[in-house]
Design a binder for these strands. Structure first.
Lengths: 190, 190
DNA sequence: TGACGTTTTTAACATATGTAAAAGGAAATC
DNA sequence: GATTTCCTTTTACATATGTTAAAAACGTCA
């Protein structure tokens, strides 16, 4: 039994170690190098991933960065998993990383055959909703300079890990604007 | 038995009429007048609503409009229901409306005691994720003029139902900018 | 019809932000 | 040590968008 699975799958007050151990043949570990792609545009990626270590990000074909996910978080290509469409983004490692994955089919098998896993999945989806809502509201009510402040407050080390051009892209502004924000000559919204 | 419940609660390929009928004592119908509040800032609204008829919208204390929901859709105060926080928005009727509601507690009771309802809730949450992702991606990749075009394409009658000032607020732009978009003298992003 | 209030558009101006290009700085390579 | 390359900041300029105010359009009601 691979203990690594026990720690990265959130129990959410529902599962116990042996529930995960019992299902461990449905989970797979992958070791990934920096810049390696986990998901490519035009494919359909029916997997949910749990990030054991490293840093992954999503970006469009035009190199616009959509999100970053840090160690301990889960991620997936939403359009594939929840819309069953071909995805239109890359999911890529910003650093050497390791992930545990489970296919949507296998997860739904657990959900449909096991009440515990059904409750777990519902609570897991609630967490996804929380994260997505947080991102959504960030976009809706905060300007780029607020979002930059909060990013470096939450992940101060990101400056060392990611070039500012990528952070600007993530924030949805030009690198010039980010420089102005960092230099403090930027009018703030609120 | 109130048949109205049977039609507004989505079955999602899991429930049958009698499942909903069996739980119908947990659902409540409300008739609401135009401008009436369903949710107020500073309260905690632990209800999920299904909009039978009418039109509801969310707006902040500063009158910024966050979203509209049309007949047949469900809605809730996300911060209350999924974060258990006090909400910071109004949810208000743009027209005379009627809704069916269920409390989060009662819903979780169904989920925890009935496998069918657990699967149903998971699929329902997947639908919420789809809708939220759609809103999120709209904000992320589309400019106001695109979002305006798609809004009137999807709901052409909205122009008759809602003043343009509210639509501008919903789009996150000034009414002056919306006038410029409508007059066609507006540079588009793509 | 005329007067009034509301909604929408237009005009004038200030400013924030993007683009393009140059300059500065840091790290790696020869 | 010098050169190269990459990353970041700065400058100059063009433009989209907000604010404010005025004008126009529209509906209601006497």
């Amino acid at each position: 039994m691979k203990k690594v699975y026990l720690n990265i799958i959130p129990k959410l007050g529902v599962l116990q170690d042996f529930d995960i151990a019992e299902a461990s043949n449905l989970f797979f570990l992958k070791i990934l190098k920096k810049d390696q792609c986990i998901v490519r545009p035009g494919t359909n990626s029916q997997y949910i991933y749990f990030l054991l270590s490293g840093l992954v990000y999503s970006h469009t074909i035009e190199e616009k960065i959509n999100w970053y996910e840090f160690e301990g978080q889960s991620f997936a290509d939403i359009e594939s998993v929840f819309f069953n469409k071909q995805c239109d983004q890359y999911i890529r490692c910003a650093e050497d990383s390791s992930v545990v994955s489970i296919s949507k089919d296998n997860l739904l098998y657990l959900v449909k055959t096991n009440h515990k896993w059904a409750v777990w999945y519902a609570l897991f989806l609630e967490e996804i909703i929380q994260r997505m809502y947080y991102y959504y509201k960030n976009l809706l009510v905060k300007d780029a300079s607020q979002r930059y402040s909060e990013l470096i407050e939450l992940h101060p080390e990101i400056i060392q890990r990611i070039p500012l051009g990528h952070i600007a892209s993530y924030l949805g502004i030009s690198q010039v604007s980010l420089s102005r924000i960092r230099a403090g000559r930027q009018t703030k919204k609120s």
